[in-house]
Amino acid sequence: MNLVNIFVKAIFIENMIFAYFLGMCSYLAVSKTVKTALGLGAAVIFVLGVTVPVNYLLENYVLKEGALSWLGPQFAAVDLSFLSFIMFIAVVAAIVQLVEMIVEKFAPALYGALGIFLPLIAVNCSILGGALFMQERQYSNIAEATSFAVGSGVGWFLAIVAIAAIREKIRYSHIPAPLRGLGITFILTGLMGIAFMAFMGIKI
């Protein structure tokens, strides 16, 4: 039950876009058509679902204070958490590279669909943000961390597909010229964020 709860909370209440503004740059840049938005959204779910559990293991068995105690009692006082930024981003970059190669080899169709989005994702704030939130919130086991990661990815997917659909619809609306494009997208996202706030407090 707890897992479902974390999952739903990550999608609706603590949505990466509407509550934390993570991954905003690619959200604004790649939301012009629904098709590309679907591709990028799927890639984000996938990469978040892979990197957060790996970073969870790294955090709990290498970086955290006392995490190295499995090596022997003399390591119990070692605290490497100051290295976490470098380690997390290195893991993200490496996994993205690896995932790209694996997908290219075994699922060329998927590779064609995700295409240029995979390498872009290494510098998407929502991926590193997922790792940092995981570190901050201290999930008690890897299943919870994974459920949070996939939930966040789905939330991001939902947000980018929704805004892309809206942007396709408003293409023929009469928007004041200076507001066209970027400006109206910001305001729309704000309005969607207000709508998403209605989910606040939901618990399963």
Binding site: F21, P176, A177, P178, L179, G183, F186
Partner: peptide, 24 residues
């Protein structure tokens, strides 16, 4: 609340672009 930050930036963009029309 978070959503208003977005609206606020949207308005800044609006003001900036109406003064600097080559950015439209």
């Amino acid at each position: 609340l978070p959503p208003f930050a977005l609206v606020c930036v949207g308005i800044i963009i609006w003001v900036q672009r109406s003064r600097n029309t080559k950015l439209v």
